[in-house]
Design a protein around this nucleic acid. Structure first.
Lengths: 119, 119
DNA sequence: TCCATATTTCAACAATCCTTGAATCATTGA
DNA sequence: TCAATGATTCAAGGATTGTTGAAATATGGA
């Protein structure tokens, strides 16, 4: 993840509807959701949802695929992960006080698969 | 960190000059840097730097203090940390595959267990 | 084929954001 | 007090972004 990608990523997350769409899609998992369901859940017009979904796609945060009549959008988990990593690598820069608290959050929400080192 | 703060934070980071200022200030540490030095380092006019610094301040990512004739800007490490945490809590939502890689990054740059004392 | 469904595209307009340079404010030292 | 320094504010303009509704495209079934 280079600076340009990170800028696009932050820009995509800096809009209420889009931030909420990302959250919805993360919860929806790898299968994603049809554009219509997203538009309904966000309570915005299909055309507005389409605009923001395209923006998220352009930023590389979601991917689209057609399935019959629907177009399914799914979060790109790698890209989201990359965005977090960019923020950490960049902002850490020898300053553990920034990402140490984030580490605690991660530990609380993600159970490390391999080494279950619970406190 | 609520949604509104996160939106402001992402918005602030979604601009090249501001993203670079944040990086510079993180590296500069808690003492921060005078506006003039920042403007010179970014190679933008003092007025332009001032505009972006104010934007970063409004988003809560940096803090300003006057010291003699200079105004020193410093990164707000807690806010940056909060932004990472928001991204993780929000985007993790039961999906370790997102923040597990980020955990690895953090582990590489921050001492995992000991919450770090400044060198 | 024709129709209904699911979604996107487009143009027009509104709103917001960025840049620029001139004017202004605050602080210090002579 | 005056001049110099460091920084901010402001207005104007251009550029980008978001919203809307109507029209267009793609798909599947009768």
């Amino acid at each position: 993840m280079d600076e340009a990608e990170a800028l696009a990523g932050f820009g995509a997350m800096a809009q209420e509807t889009r931030l909420r769409i990302v959250r919805l899609l993360v919860m929806a998992g790898r299968d994603g959701l049809p554009a219509g369901d997203i538009s309904a859940a966000m309570e915005v017009s299909p055309s507005n949802a389409s605009f923001h979904l395209k923006e998220l796609e352009r930023a590389g945060l979601v991917v689209a695929r057609r399935e019959s009549r629907s177009i399914l959008y799914a979060a790109d988990f790698e890209a989201l992960s990359g965005l977090i990593r960019f923020l950490m690598e960049d902002c850490c820069s020898g300053r553990p006080e920034i990402c140490a608290p984030a580490l605690a959050t991660a530990a609380a929400c993600c159970a490390p698969k391999s080494a279950a080192s619970a406190p």
